[in-house]
Amino acid sequence: MEGLKECVANLVVYLHPSKAKCPNEAILTELSSMLFTYNETFEGVVLAYDPGNCSNLAKILPGIHPYFGVKLTARILLFNPKPDMLLEGEVVKITPHSIHAVVLGFSAAVIADEDIRGEFKYKSKHGKEVYVSKSHKKHKIKVGTILRFVVKSFDEEILHLSGSLLADHSGCARWLDKNSDKWSQADRF
């Protein structure tokens, strides 16, 4: 799946003087506060960090509060979905009008019915809701399926994805992997 990247960041963490006793812990707290929020500087959501090297030198900032800045280099794992990227997520809910999935366990993704290609037909049997492909009966999307979809847009504030299943290479990830010949052929025509 796309949308994940690792990068090395040179950071300066500003700490309150009360944290001077144990700056390491304070640095980790600062870094943790970035987790699961969209960061404009990194252009992505910080998923994980490795604090790496901290410099031993700290610079006291002039100003009313004598905050001090510690330089460090950290490796950071970012999630930055962009339109047309191919993402995967677990389907959590199916309605006649939409498919809902969760990507990486935290980001909600929705595929509205106009973004579901005509091939898929909604069926509800014994309370179990499922989208079945008309051309390949075994290609099904139900709750629990790992869904591969194309990103339409990304709401940076609440990390909400809007996706589409219009492209042939989207759908149930497992079926797509097993039957690559079938959908790639369809692509050719």
Partner: peptide, 12 residues
């Protein structure tokens, strides 16, 4: 539920 899951701006 439908609104909240359809778009991020309705969640709040």
């Amino acid at each position: 539920i439908s609104l909240a899951s359809s778009s991020g701006e309705f969640v709040d």
